[in-house]
């Protein structure tokens, strides 16, 4: 029996938006799906060996719950991003939500295939040595080749 398939495009590189692709990919793999994630544009940040630079910003993110209402003028002050990121990481820990690193490792362990967009690597002049080794590089046709055969296909 051939397994079901799922493809995800991960295009965002912030701490909050990094979760959906890794959660869905690891879970689908646990449910027996063959999964591929295509990382493009800012999503490539999620392939860095060091994920500590992945942050969340309250700026232009009005749906983000804040402990106290914060005017945009305050949100743009230096250090606000680091503070918001630190606070979210504390919440993540407190509520038993896995870290990004842990979820990514679980994806790889479950043989989720990661493909990085070569065009984005060239565009932003990324250094491939900063990315984890378990990545293949390809383009739109690579993604569509797999996506065309999937049961679930998502853009995050």
């Amino acid at each position: 029996m051939s397994s079901k398939k799922m493809a995800i495009i991960a295009s965002k590189g912030t701490l909050d938006m990094a979760y959906p692709p890794f959660i869905l990919a690891s879970t689908a793999a646990a449910l027996g799906y063959e999964v591929q994630v295509f990382f493009t544009f800012y999503g490539l940040q999620l392939l860095r060996k060091d994920l500590s630079t992945v942050m969340v910003s309250p700026l232009a993110n009005p749906a983000m719950p804040m402990p106290v209402p914060m005017p945009v003028m305050v949100q743009m002050l230096p250090g606000m991003e680091s503070m918001a990121t630190m606070m979210m990481k504390q919440k993540i820990k407190k509520h038993g939500v896995a870290s990004l690193q842990e979820l990514r490792d679980l994806c790889l362990e479950a043989e989720v295939k990661f493909t990085a967009c070569q065009m984005t690597v060239d565009l932003f002049e990324f250094d491939k040595s900063e990315f984890i080794d378990d990545v293949e590089y390809g383009g739109a046709a690579t993604f569509i080749g797999f996506a065309g055969e999937t049961d679930i296909c998502l853009f995050v």
Binding site: T27, A30, G96, V97, A98, L106
Partner: peptide
């Protein structure tokens, strides 16, 4: 103490 998706991944 674990949140989604860890209960499912650990069960697996």
């Amino acid at each position: 103490g674990l949140s989604c998706p860890m209960p499912i991944l650990k069960t697996k």
